[in-house]
Amino acid sequence: MRDWLNTALRRLPVWPFYWLGALPAAWYFWNGLQGRLGADPVKALEHEYGLIALQFLIAALCVTPLREIAGINLLRFRRMLGLMAFSYACLHLAVWLGLDRQFDWPRIVADLTKRPYIILGMAAFLMLVPLAWTSRDAALRRMGPVAWRRLHRLAYPATALAAIHFVWLVKAWPPEPLLYAAGVAALLGWRALRGRRRRARRPALG
């Protein structure tokens, strides 16, 4: 069953998923233009793009545990997941700048210096920029796998900050952002434990 699944996954082309991933963006934007995003369309669009970005980040973080725990190999899809996350983060930021803050630069600067949840969100976005920049095979070859992998560990703090950004912007403690934060904490916790186990197995040097 697992081998059959992995064989099928290997045969699946990746490129259609870029188009599939772009569909929700177009769908929500179109509905927004048609006045079908409800009472507060700017907030709805902004929230939706941000949430999808977080979901893609979490999906990308699931690739390694899925392979090591369940033996399902989605490695070929990870770049697509990361780039989709970055694209939705760009859309989220664009909606915030253009439709929410309406390019009111003094207010944007004030928000970016005074509001912790916005600073965190922006920090998460800035961490994703070099990852998207070095996403092509040529960049991996140029940097070498060790440096490339080290750089791409930025995905961990970026996802953590994105989850905190979500929790921090709501009133009180509603369940949805807390569940996302718990999921991110579990994925990062699993990695931390795995790293510790590996270091423990490694023989001591000198």
Binding site: G35, L37, P41, L99, Q102, R107, P116, L169
Partner: peptide, 22 residues
């Protein structure tokens, strides 16, 4: 007087469009 986490200087008017001014 801002909310500690966001500004209270403007408001989104419910029922507006994506491009409605605040």
């Amino acid at each position: 007087v801002d909310h500690p986490r966001w500004s209270q200087a403007t408001e989104r008017v419910i029922g507006g469009s994506l491009l409605s001014p605040q």
